[in-house]
Deep mutational scan, measured.
Amino acid sequence: AEKTGIVNVSSSLNVREGASTSSKVIGSLSGNTKVTIVGEEGAFYKIEYKGSHGYVAKEYIKDIKDE
């Protein structure tokens, strides 16, 4: 049951290796980017990222929809 969301930041949002603010940053997404959410862990969504997965803070994702 995948969902999509939109990155809701003015600059960019860090994509992390794990569901923690201390996890390594593996990339970033600019505002209004559409993401595919494959799961959630605590305050983070697990998303599809560059052929693999990454984690982003839930508070910066809006317009969550079921695909």
Rank of each mutant, 00 (worst) to 15 (best):
K50V: 09
V9Q: 07
I47A: 00
N32L: 10
S28C: 06
G42A: 07
S12W: 10
G39L: 04
E41P: 01
G27A: 04
K58Q: 06
E67F: 04
G31D: 13
G5H: 04
T21Y: 14
N32R: 10
T33Y: 06
N8D: 09
S10D: 15
Y45C: 03
S10R: 10
N32H: 12
S20G: 07
S23W: 02
G5Q: 03
F44I: 01
S23H: 10
N14W: 11
N14G: 08
G51P: 08
I37A: 01
V35Y: 02
G27S: 02
E67W: 02
D63L: 13
N32I: 05
G54C: 03
I37M: 03
G51N: 11
I26H: 01
V56Y: 00
S20K: 07
G31E: 10
K24R: 12
K3M: 09
K34Y: 08
K24G: 06
F44C: 03
N14D: 15
A57Y: 15
H53S: 07
Y60K: 07
G18F: 13
Y45K: 01
S30E: 11
K3Y: 04
S23P: 01
I61G: 01
G54Q: 01
Y45S: 02
G54D: 00
E2K: 07
Y60C: 07
V15T: 01
G5I: 04
V9H: 12
V7A: 05
E48V: 12
L13D: 02
E17Y: 08
K62Q: 10
S20A: 09
R16A: 04
K58C: 04
Y49D: 01
G5K: 04
Y45P: 00
G18V: 08
S23A: 13
S52N: 13
E48G: 05
L13K: 02
K34V: 11
S20T: 10
A19M: 05
K24S: 07
V15P: 00
S30K: 14
T36W: 15
I47N: 00
F44T: 02
A1K: 06
E67P: 10
V35I: 13
G54S: 03
Y45D: 01
T33N: 06
V25N: 04
E59I: 12
Y49S: 01
E48W: 10
K65Q: 15
I64K: 05
T21P: 15
Y55H: 02
G31P: 15
A43E: 13
K46W: 07
T36F: 15
I26V: 08
K65P: 10
K58T: 04
S12E: 15
S10M: 11
G54I: 01
I64S: 06
S52G: 14
T36V: 15
Y55N: 00
T33F: 06
H53A: 09
E17A: 13
S30L: 15
V56H: 00
Y60M: 10
V9E: 07
A43W: 08
D66Q: 11
L13G: 04
A1D: 11
E67M: 09
G42P: 03
I64N: 06
V35D: 00
I37G: 00
Y55P: 00
S28L: 13
I37C: 02
A1L: 12
L13T: 09
S20Q: 07
G39I: 02
S12Y: 15
S12M: 13
K62E: 09
V56Q: 00
S30T: 12
A43Q: 15
G5N: 03
T36R: 15
K46S: 03
E41G: 03
A57Q: 13
I26Q: 02
S52F: 12
N8Q: 10
S10N: 13
V25P: 04
